[in-house]
Amino acid sequence: MDAAIRAVALVKHFGVVAAVDGLTFDLAPGRIYGLLGPNGSGKTTLIRLLTGMTRPTSGQAEVLGVAMPNRPNLARIGYMTQADGIYPALTAGENVQFFAAAYGIEDMARVREALALVDLADREKTIAATLSGGQRRRLSLACALVHQPEVLFLDEPTVGVDPLLRVQFWAHFRKLADAGTTIVVSSHVMDEADRCDELLFMRAGKVIARGSGATLREQAGTKDLEAAFLHFAGVGAVAA
């Protein structure tokens, strides 16, 4: 099957700094990919390149066979930003409805479905500003899901999310992937990485290792992913 996401010699410079430094990879449809790396390793820039929010310095980013940036193609992509990106003065329902309309969907059933998916069905009429932090995070996810995208980018979706909610999030992600959605999750929390089908370790704009959690641990000869990351990052001494 064709790749859902493809990067070809993808480079993005900010001044002299290469935030993304020559990435080439294919990501298959219907799988969950984890972008793992410390802050500043280029995860968010990579997601912004793949969603077409920024133009590469060189190379190409493709989503569903279409070179990005491409505006019409955005209708098939979901993007949950690091910031909640919801309108605090609107109700939860109005927020989802607004983003649904931006994607060309005017069906309230779809709006309610998205709210139910993140367990906010009973909050439809609640003003977003009065929701708790975790509820706002879920609302943000609902806004990214409402148009049932084929590819979903989640930039640190579980930051500030309590463990119980985190489990629910991952259950949603798995359900979506099983239904064929390709999901790219960025995180710097290694313990959630094992829930991804495949991991891309990032450091200084480069992918330093790729594989399932088990494979990476095995290759590095370490018990946990954190140590595996340090191994691939060349900080070998700690790997033992």
């Binding site: 955005l74 209708a75 930003t81 910031a83 309108y87 994607y103 806004c143």
Partner: peptide, 11 residues
């Protein structure tokens, strides 16, 4: 608030 960024990620 990040809503513009998100809006720009729609068509």
């Amino acid at each position: 608030g990040g809503t513009l960024e998100r809006l720009m990620a729609t068509p």
